[in-house]
Design a protein around this nucleic acid. Sequence first.
DNA 1: TAAAAACCGCGGG
DNA 2: CCCGCGGTTTTTA
Length: 144
Amino acid sequence: MVVNEGSCPLGLWHVHVVWSGDVVMQVCFLRTPAAERAPRAFIRYCAGETDALREFRTPATDGDTVYARIYRVVQAIPAGQTRSYGEVAAMVGTSPRVVGNAMRSNPTPLVVPCHRVVAKGGIGGFSPSVDLKRALLALEGVRV
DNA sequence: TAAAAACCGCGGG
DNA sequence: CCCGCGGTTTTTA
């Protein structure tokens, strides 16, 4: 199994991707680019084609752990829409804090669009920066 | 190891 | 502002 690594620019950040075929193992945001390029679909996403990442799978959604169920629910949120931590929690049968925990340790942001999960009365948190969360939502035409 | 405490990207009172 | 929430991580023994 050949594993690739590459990045593409997104505003002040670079989206770093580790993938193999249509399976994305890791996504992270860094200030510096990688030597190779990320898959075409990521470049299209960054250009505003917000549905471009739906072709990918992620191991994060495998299994029947609470986190895997949360990631499946979040992956199903369409671009341009948001859900609150509490809404996701209700769908999975857990508490909002746990959804926040799962989002924080999401190994594949964008593929599992954790930026579409917001607080009921605000934007909620994001690592590495809530500004980036705002930028992603703006890219998808969401106003917060 | 195993048990306890701490930690939170929240929400409702 | 405070407290309950619950899965995970860290600490403690």
